[in-house]
Design a protein around this nucleic acid. Structure first.
Lengths: 346, 346
DNA sequence: CTGAAAGCGCTTACAG
DNA sequence: CTGAAAGCGCTTACAG
C-alpha cells in the first residue's frame, strides 16, 4: 500500500515570471515591473509581488533578462602573457590584481570571465567570445602589442588596459607611476653610495621602459654615466630569469646594485646571487618592483616600489563600467611608493 | 554637395541566423542545422551555408544558443577562503590552480566564472548566481565546511571539491595524497636525525589534518613520541603566520625541525626564524607543502611536498564536466612527491 | 532532406 | 496603473 503525498505533488516551485504572475493573478509584465522596481507600478502591487517572490524563493533569471536586454553583465579579464617577456600568470602580482578586480566587479554585480592564454596576437580576440560575450574587457599588461590594442579599441566593446600610456594610444589606460618608481628606487641606491647600478628587465615592455627611463634620470641627476652593459634584458619568469642572470654574471661585468622590473625577478636575482656566493645587500644591493606580499618575507626582506593593487583593480573596473555607460573616461595613473627594507642595505 | 555611398548603406552585416538564412534563401532551421553540423542536413547545403557564414564572419550567438538550450557553459570556481585559516587568495598555490583550471576549461570551451569572497557559509550560495548561472561548481578547499558542502551537493548543480575525502561526504573530491605527503616529509626529517619535529598548521582543515596524521605515523614508526606542544596552530596567511610563530617561539619550547602545511607558511617560518637569529637548516630544518614556483628560489631553497597542480586542474574540470553529462564520477587522489632542497639540511 | 511553428524567460513600447 | 503582444537569437519536435 502506498501513500501519495498530494500536497507535495501539487506544490510546484516557481521558476519563472509566468509562474509568479499566475500565482498572484497578474500579468507577466506586472510581475517583471514589480521585481525590477519600475516606477510605473503601484506600490501595493509591487510589495505584494515581491513578498510572494521572496516567499517562494524566486528571483529573476538573470541570463534571460540579460539576453533580452542584449547585455552580458560580464567583463573579461585578459592577461597579456606574451611569450617573449615570459611573465607567468603565477606571478603573485597578477593574482592580487585579479582578486582586486574580482572584488570590484562583484560589488557592481558583474561577472568575471577569465581568459588565460598566451597571446601572440590580441587581434585574434576580435571576433572571439572574449569580445562578443562580454560587455567590456580589461587587459592586464600591454606586452608588446600596443598597436594591436589600438586596433581592438576601435571595436564596439570597451577595453581598458593596465599598463603605460603610450603616446598615440586610443585606448584607456590605468597604470602606476612607473617612471617615478624607477627613479625613486635608483635614487635610493645612489644615496647609499652605489654607483655601478644595473637595470634588470625587458624594456620592450612599455612599463619597464618607463621604469628604465626613471633609472636613467636618477643616474643623470647624480652625474653617473649610464653603462649600456648594465642594462640587462632579464625575463619576468623565475626560471628563465635565473638563466639570464647567470649568463650576465659570466660576463664578469662589475656592479654593486640592481634595480629589478618586478619583485619575482628580484627574488630570483637574490637567490641566484646567493648561490653564486654574493651577499645581499653587502656585495649587491637589490631593489624590486610591485611589493607583492612575499616581498616582506624574503631573505633579506626586499626593498621595492609598491604598486597600489587594490586601488588599481577598483579603477580598472570603474573605468570599463563607465565606458559601457557611454561616459568619457580618461587615463588614471596611480602613485607608487618606495618601501625600504633590507635588501638595499642600511 | 554630398555624396552618399549607397553600397555601404545597403551592405548590412549578418548578425543572426535569420540574416544568414535570408541571404542563402533557406529557413532559420536549416541555417541552424548547418552551423551545428546536424546529420539531418544535406552535405551540399551545409557546406554552402558554412562558407557563407565564414565569408560574412558570422558565428552563432553563443548566449542565445545556451539560453535556448538552458545551459550556461559556465563553470564557477569558488575559493574557500575561510576566515579562521585565513589563507589568502594571493597564495601562489591558488593562482597556479586557477591557471590550470582555466586552461582545461578553455579546452572544453567552457567559461570560468570566478568567485572570490570570504565564505562564512557556503550555503549562502545555494540560490545565488554561482549555482544558478553555472552548469557546475569547483570548490577549491573545504575549509571547515564539510557538512555544508554535503548539503549543497544535494542540489541539481554538480559540484566538485578540491580537498580531502572525508568519510560520509556525498560530493566528489579531487585531492593530493595528503597523509602520504606529511608522512614522507616527516620521515625525511627523522632520517636526518631530527627528533623534535614541530607541525605547523591548522588541523581544523581536513587536508592539514591528514598531513598531520602522516606526520604522526612517521613519528610512531621511528618510535618518537609526539609532543602535543609541538603541534602548533599556524594560519596560512603570511602576516598572521608570522605573529603566531613569534608567539610560539616565545614559549621557548625546544625543537629542531618543522613540517609546515604550506610553502607560504614555510617561507614565513624561515623568514621569522632568521630574523630571530636561527639558521635554517642548521638550527631548524624546514619542510613545506605545495612546491610553488617560488620554493626553489627561496633562501635556502625549500624542501617540500609537490602537489601536481596541472593534473589537479585537469581532473577537477573533467570531473565536473562528466557530472554535468550525468556520468558517475568517483574521487581522484593524485600522488604527491617529496622534493628535497636545502631547507631541510644535507 | 527541409520548413513552419513553438518556445527558452524575460522586457518594454504601445494601447487602454 | 496594468496587460497583450512582440521579440531578443536561437533549437528541435513535428509534419511534409
Amino acid at each position: 500500500m502506498e501513500f501519495i503525498n498530494l500536497s507535495e505533488k501539487t506544490q510546484k516551485s516557481i521558476t519563472s515570471l509566468q509562474d509568479l504572475a499566475d500565482l498572484a493573478g497578474v500579468s507577466r509584465a506586472t510581475a517583471s515591473r514589480a521585481l525590477n522596481d519600475s516606477p510605473l507600478l503601484n506600490k501595493k502591487t509591487k510589495e505584494r509581488l515581491r513578498k510572494l517572490a521572496e516567499k517562494h524563493n524566486y528571483s529573476i533569471n538573470r541570463r534571460a533578462s540579460d539576453f533580452r536586454l542584449r547585455r552580458t553583465r560580464v567583463i573579461s579579464v585578459v592577461f597579456m602573457l606574451d611569450l617573449r617577456s615570459d611573465q607567468h600568470m603565477s606571478d603573485p602580482f597578477f593574482l592580487d590584481m585579479l582578486g582586486s578586480i574580482a572584488d570590484s566587479l562583484a560589488e557592481h554585480d558583474y561577472d568575471l570571465l577569465l581568459t588565460h592564454a598566451p597571446m601572440r596576437n590580441v587581434l585574434d580576440l576580435k571576433e572571439s567570445r572574449v569580445m562578443r560575450n562580454s560587455d567590456g574587457v580589461i587587459f592586464i599588461g600591454q606586452g608588446e602589442q600596443h598597436e594591436k590594442l589600438n586596433e581592438l579599441a576601435k571595436g564596439k566593446t570597451p577595453i581598458v588596459v593596465w599598463g603605460y600610456p603610450i603616446a598615440g594610444k586610443n585606448y584607456v589606460v590605468v597604470g602606476s607611476e612607473n617612471l617615478n618608481g624607477g627613479y625613486q628606487s635608483t635614487r635610493h641606491l645612489l644615496g647609499l653610495q652605489h654607483r655601478k647600478i644595473a637595470f634588470f628587465g625587458n624594456t620592450g615592455n612599455p612599463e619597464n621602459a618607463a621604469r628604465h627611463e626613471g633609472y636613467l634620470q636618477a643616474l643623470s641627476q647624480f652625474e653617473v654615466e649610464a653603462d649600456a652593459d648594465l642594462k640587462v634584458d632579464i625575463p619576468f619568469e623565475m626560471k628563465s630569469a635565473r638563466e639570464a642572470i647567470i649568463k650576465f654574471m659570466a660576463s664578469k661585468k662589475s656592479f654593486d646594485a640592481v634595480v629589478c622590473a618586478s619583485d619575482v625577478m628580484a627574488l630570483a636575482s637574490i637567490s641566484t646571487f646567493q648561490e653564486l656566493g654574493l651577499r645581499v645587500p653587502q656585495d649587491v644591493a637589490v631593489v624590486g618592483f610591485d611589493d607583492i606580499r612575499l616581498a616582506a618575507y624574503s631573505n633579506p626582506p626586499l626593498t621595492t616600489v609598491r604598486q597600489n593593487i587594490q586601488e588599481a583593480g577598483r579603477v580598472l573596473v570603474e573605468s570599463v563600467l563607465a565606458m559601457i555607460k557611454g561616459e568619457d573616461v580618461t587615463d588614471t595613473i596611480l602613485p607608487s611608493e618606495l618601501i625600504v627594507r633590507k635588501s638595499s642595505g642600511k
